[in-house]
């Protein structure tokens, strides 16, 4: 196949769109994390996120976050139309820095948890959840 100038141009546009689009989708997630941390550096350890590897029903996916010594935990679903999920703030009588809930996931995607630790540092973890909306367990 011979590439005309028009083809080349089209290919280039397509390639550009491919590289730009995923970045756009994640930009708001990164913005939200930056807003939460105030631009501080984020460590890798200190927060645990428990989520199923495969969720048959994306309407109710059980997750649990646990970050010893955290004052706040932000949970985001990177692939949802609105990535924010919940922010847990622990008060003086919190028995542990753990909470479980059920969330909605639009499709297979990464769930992100960012914890604000009491010493002022931040920790982040992410877990990919496969979502089979059909519910037939495929």
């Amino acid at each position: 196949m011979r590439l005309t100038r028009r083809d080349t141009f089209g290919l280039a546009l397509g390639a550009m769109a491919l590289t730009v689009l995923p970045f756009r989708a994640n930009a708001s997630v990164e913005d939200m994390i930056a807003e939460f941390t105030g631009g501080a550096d984020i460590g890798d350890s200190g927060v645990d996120l428990t989520a199923p590897e495969i969720a048959e029903n994306g309407n109710t996916v059980p997750i649990s976050v646990d970050a010893p010594g955290a004052s706040e935990i932000l949970v985001l679903a990177a692939g949802n139309p609105t990535p924010a999920v919940a922010t847990f703030a622990f008060g003086p009588l919190a028995g542990s820095r753990m909470a479980s809930t059920r969330i909605r996931l639009a499709g297979t995607q990464e769930v992100i948890a960012v914890a604000k630790l009491e010493d002022g540092s931040f920790a982040r973890t992410a877990k990919t959840v496969k979502v089979t909306i059909g519910g037939c367990g495929g």
């Binding site: 309407n59 109710t60 996916v61 649990s64 679903a77 949802n80 609105t82 990535p83 924010a84 999920v85 919940a86 922010t87 847990f88 703030a89 622990f90 008060g91 003086p92 009588l93 919190a94 028995g95 542990s96 753990m98 909470a99 479980s100 809930t101 059920r102 969330i103 909605r104 996931l105």
Partner: peptide
């Protein structure tokens, strides 16, 4: 205060929370 949760639309129908 024990816990204060800010909830977004991504929380499932019939919101459930478990904490200590």
């Amino acid at each position: 205060n024990v816990i204060d949760v800010k909830m977004e639309p991504a929380i499932s129908t019939n919101p459930y929370f478990e904490f200590e």
